[in-house]
Computed example of a mutant assay.
Amino acid sequence: MIFNHLSPSEYHIKIRAKVHLDNLQEKELEFYIKITHPFTQSTTFYVFISLIVIEIIYLRYAILQ
């Protein structure tokens, strides 16, 4: 199964299957999934990019001096 474009949230998924050869035995699988925001939308990402930009500006300034 593929779930594209799920919003960040917690999901509860149940899957049921019937086996016709085994007296119509029904089985169920249940699990939880937590979808988080992409890393590129996190505070850590913005801090990391900001530090890289500051370092580039500093190195460029240091080289020109």
Rank of each mutant, 00 (worst) to 15 (best):
Y61Q: 13
K27V: 01
Y46D: 08
A17P: 00
H12Y: 11
V19D: 01
E10P: 04
F48R: 09
I57W: 10
A62G: 02
E10C: 01
I33H: 05
T44K: 08
T43G: 06
E28I: 15
Q25K: 05
Y32A: 05
N4L: 01
T44Y: 09
Q25T: 03
I33L: 15
Y46K: 13
H5S: 09
T40G: 10
H5V: 00
L29D: 12
N4R: 07
K18L: 06
S7F: 07
F48V: 12
I35A: 10
A17L: 04
V53R: 04
H5N: 10
R60E: 11
D22T: 00
R16W: 02
K18W: 01
L29Y: 15
V53C: 13
F45C: 13
V53K: 07
H5Q: 05
Y61L: 14
L51N: 14
L29N: 13
S7P: 06
E10H: 02
E10L: 00
I54T: 13
I57D: 06
I49V: 15
R60K: 12
Y11I: 11
E55M: 08
S50Q: 07
L64W: 02
L59N: 15
I52M: 08
F31S: 10
E26C: 03
L51Q: 10
E30I: 14
S42H: 10
T44R: 04
I49E: 03
E55F: 07
V19A: 01
L29E: 14
V53W: 04
I54H: 05
S50M: 11
H5C: 00
L59M: 14
R16M: 09
E28K: 15
K34S: 11
Y58L: 15
F39E: 09
I13D: 03
H20P: 03
K34C: 04
I63V: 12
E10Q: 01
L51S: 15
P38M: 00
A62F: 07
E28T: 15
S42C: 06
P38S: 11
